[in-house]
């Protein structure tokens, strides 16, 4: 029932990451209405204050917005979503490139390897 959390990072930032992933991957499409803080907290098995903090962070980043009475929604601004998607992709890429460099591959070899991979 609960989400799994890493032990080395604050819980709220892991919640931000998880929800962000759901948004950019389309699991939570633009304009989707989010469940209440309490329900989301119950689903994740975390404290409502922590979930609240995570959602505020997402709001600050422009990925969700709240309407006073209706609740919270995923942003309909596709550009913001795409931008975040790119940032996440770049993070993955950075990690990948770093790991490959440690293995001794240079840029050209990596591209060649990627082309081989179907």
């Amino acid at each position: 029932m609960e989400w799994e959390f890493r032990t080395d990072l604050p819980i709220y930032s892991q919640l931000v990451g998880k929800i962000k992933l759901d948004i950019v991957s389309g699991a939570l499409p633009p304009g989707t209405r989010l469940a209440s803080v309490r329900d989301m907290a119950m689903e994740a098995g975390v404290n409502p204050n922590t979930m609240q903090r995570a959602l505020q962070e997402l709001e600050r980043e422009g990925l969700v917005y709240s309407q006073r009475t209706a609740g919270r929604f995923v942003t309909e601004d596709i550009r913001v979503i795409e931008e975040n998607k790119r940032i996440l992709a770049r993070d993955q890429l950075d990690g990948f490139l770093k790991a490959m460099k440690e293995l001794g591959y240079d840029r050209e070899e990596i591209i060649a390897l990627l082309k081989e991979e179907k």
């Binding site: 959390f5 032990t7 080395d8 604050p10 819980i11 930032s13 994740a44 975390v46 404290n47 922590t50």
Partner: peptide, 28 residues
């Protein structure tokens, strides 16, 4: 994961009062 804050108590003394995410953030 359901806590906001923690209070550490040992031998009748409070040794720490902090928020969970502060500890995680600072201690890694």
């Amino acid at each position: 994961q359901v806590l906001d804050d923690v209070i550490f108590i040992n031998n009748g003394r409070v040794t720490l009062q902090s928020s969970v995410d502060d500890i995680r953030g600072e201690q890694g």
